[in-house]
Amino acid sequence: MQQPVIKTELLTKRFGSFTAADELTFEVYPGEIFGFLGANGAGKTTAMRMLCGLSLPSSGKATIAGFDIYKQTEKIKQNIGYMSQKFSLYEDLTVIENIRFYAGIYGLSDKEIKAKSNNLLDQLGLQNEAKKLVSELPLGWKQKLSFSVAVIHQPKIVFLDEPTGGVDPVTRRQFWDLIYDASDKGLTVFVTTHYMDEAEYCNRISIMVDGRIEALDTPSNLKKQFSANSMDDVFYQLARGAKRNE
């Protein structure tokens, strides 16, 4: 068995008396597409923010790409990409300016930046839009662009927080093609979603309910375990018991 790239042990985040993420323990292996499911407010984003070094855990242990989540956050950041729920490229910069900016602050050389941005524009079919302001792009394209920017420095792991929210089915499909491509090249993908068809694309999934991980396995095993026909069913059976409602 390979060494896990993400390894957590009883990772917990409390906000006052509220426990947003409760004793999370799981491992993610290199090249895996790991689905992180849960109802709204179940604590997915909180967990993801801890793993990305944006939020300090209250207790528990975790290593990302072999680095400690408490002491080596800057090392972790060199090795991860992150795409938040909120679209977070600069709307007042053009497509190419955004690409160059992020490539630049990740420390890529001028030569790499040039090659990378050309590749990326080709891959996304955005050559003609390169000089357009990002604010003028349709949402689906923006999401694809944000994903590509999040992995521009070739990280080991990419964290995607509801990357396809509000996007049409065709674009969603294209988005997942991007994810598969990247995963084929060895990238580990950690993704949250509300779409159960997307859950089926994942190698393994965990389902969070009220801050705890209630189930973790491959989609087919989970269906067996809950004697359900679809992931929808599995999710429904678990999420029904949730006390938190938003």
């Binding site: 944006l54 090392k75 950041k77 992150y82 938040s84 490229l89 602050i105």
Partner: peptide, 13 residues
């Protein structure tokens, strides 16, 4: 407010 600072904060800047 627009959330771009978070994208900056996940970089090793």
């Amino acid at each position: 407010e627009i959330g771009t600072i978070e994208q900056i904060n996940v970089t090793p800047i």
